[in-house]
Write a protein that binds this DNA or RNA. Sequence first.
RNA 1: GGAGAAAUGGCAGAGUGGUCGAUUGCGGCGGUCUUGAAAACCGUUGAAGGCAACUUCCGGGGGUUCGAAUCCCUCUUUCUCCGCCA
Length: 425
Amino acid sequence: MLQVAVIRQEKERVIKALNKKRLFHADQLIDKVLRIDDERKAVQNNLNALQTEANEAAKLIPNLMKNGEKEAAEQLKSRSIELKSQIKNLDEQLSGLDQQLTQALYELPNLPHESVPEGKTPDDNEVLLSKGSIPKFDFKAAPHWDLIKKYDIIDFELGNKITGAGFPIYKGKGARLVRALINFFLDQATNAGYLEVQAPLLVNEASAYGTGQLPDKEGQMYHATADNYYLIPTAEVPITNLYRDVIIDERELPIKNVGYTPCFRREAGSWGAHVRGLNRLHQFDKVEIVQIAHPSNSYKLHEEMCAHIAALLESLELPYRILRLCGGDISFNAALCHDFEVFSAAQERWLEVSSCSNFETFQANRLKLRIKDKQNNKVLAHTLNGSALALPRILAAILENNQTANQGIRIPSVLVPYCGFEYIN
RNA sequence: GGAGAAAUGGCAGAGUGGUCGAUUGCGGCGGUCUUGAAAACCGUUGAAGGCAACUUCCGGGGGUUCGAAUCCCUCUUUCUCCGCCA
């Protein structure tokens, strides 16, 4: 959520930035915000004046009573009763305006960082780096959905029976490899200074609002309606919300957390071509890194997070590229986002395996996540997160890229100590 | 699930209708002293809105009253006891 003060003070810059995100009626939305905010202030001023009067009356009455001025006291009492109904009225107006203001602000996406390229579609994303060699085979490479059948390591049909489409059953070396990847990713993050946390997989409404899943993306989350909880679409939600309504001493920064969770996504309406096998699931595993940073160095920390993610991909020996998302493709909440894609050799496609974003103060403003310095001055924190990494597509790429003519699938050497075998065969 | 108790500032913990935004202790910050540190002493120290005056906030919501941290209702959470249970 953008800050009204920023919108007010830098209106032109904000409109320009929103246009880059292809929000072309930004000026109207911003005028609406400012109009509501003006009204809010006016109502609040009126309310304050009446409250002052009521407070003074309440102090005066006992004195009048003591001095035996019954008449005056009674008069003041009836005035107070009058004031009370007016105050109630204005109070209701004020909370109505507050709600309107929040609603209006919810419609505004985050401002893209200046380095975000102009553009409309994923084709306009900027390729920052492309690394690793794409494997060549002297045989017909099989897509991962054939390989998993051949080696009997993942069963989609069985998942259909238990739950439905998009909930695969990992078996044997498949299950072991998933566990190995999770442990490897957690260990790497811990070594890099992240504190591991295990957070709930269901969150309440306030948390979903805090990180921006609500109100917009309600349809993307599974909703446990009996208790009004949401299954998390990413560990970002519970982990970032650990710091909701918190004021952090700047000496504790940056806060670095890592967590493994399953992620649940309804992916409503997004099934079709290119979603076979592990490419898109309703439940998948992901290790997520989250940082709470001071605004002065959040971009440096974003680079550090991206370097961490790149190092993971390199140690898994996967060819990858890094994209800087353009204004048209970057998410509603992010100021800057780098996508990491691995090349899947049999599908001959790039698969997104990580998104690393700096949200600047956009989430912090909703979360009321602030930093205080020694002088007790407070500023909104910057929040960042990145997948490190999402498992299924990594798994798909490992299976496809490391297949051999007759030895089965070679496991990247860094994972061998974790899974205890060198080949799936 | 049943019975009871409680929820106050970073923490501990007073406050049961009228200058209470809240005594006090610890912690934090600043200072005196010290070569430096500790101890001691002095000062300072919640949040939000507002240009400001000022206003709001004592778990959330509602009510009683001229006036509520304090009384009533309700929800949530925590603790104790009982029951059940991975």
